[in-house]
Amino acid sequence: MFGFFKRNVKIQKKFDISDLRVGSIETIDRNKFKILCIDDQGFQYEHLLKNHDFNLKVVSDIEDINAVEAYDLIVCDIIGVGKAFGSKFEGGHIISEIKKRYPFKKVIAFSGSQFNPEFNKYFTLSDKSLNKDTE
């Protein structure tokens, strides 16, 4: 009666952790990983990251979402940026637009302010949220 249901049974090889071929964190060329920080007050960790050979560019604002295209990671302040887009959500709007246009880019919301619940959706859209006093 149920002959049309056939099971495809495949025997698969089992792997263990030693089969993974990954380089150590020490061998990663940090300079190839491009980071953009959008913050109207500058980025307090700029020199530290550059001293550790990260490819970091800090800008006070952007006027076009395409400005983030070349970057792998975007760190975005919330207040004081995104003014060209005319949204009261400022950096939150930038995060939203980045995720619409470049859904696979990693975005960190980075702010020292407290926000009303209207901003929650923008923090949810980001891949990570950090306070500016984070070490």
Rank of each mutant, 00 (worst) to 15 (best):
Q12A: 10
K13G: 09
K14R: 14
F15M: 10
S18F: 04
D19F: 03
D19N: 12
R21Y: 04
S24F: 05
I25W: 04
N31Q: 10
K32S: 15
K34H: 09
I35H: 09
C37R: 02
D39G: 05
D40F: 03
Q44L: 10
Y45I: 08
K50T: 15
L56A: 10
S60W: 00
S60T: 15
D61V: 04
I62K: 00
E63A: 05
I65W: 00
I65K: 00
A67I: 01
A70R: 00
Y71D: 05
Y71P: 00
C76N: 09
D77C: 08
V81Q: 01
K83D: 02
A84W: 00
F85Q: 00
F89S: 07
H93D: 14
I95D: 05
I95M: 05
S96H: 07
S96A: 11
S96G: 12
E97L: 07
I98T: 08
I98N: 03
K99Q: 07
R101S: 13
R101L: 12
P103M: 10
P103V: 10
V107Q: 12
G112I: 07
Q114A: 12
Q114F: 05
P117L: 00
E118L: 01
K121W: 00
F123E: 05
T124Q: 11
T124M: 12
L125S: 12
D127H: 03
K128H: 10
L130G: 11
L130M: 11
N131W: 00
D133E: 09
T134H: 04
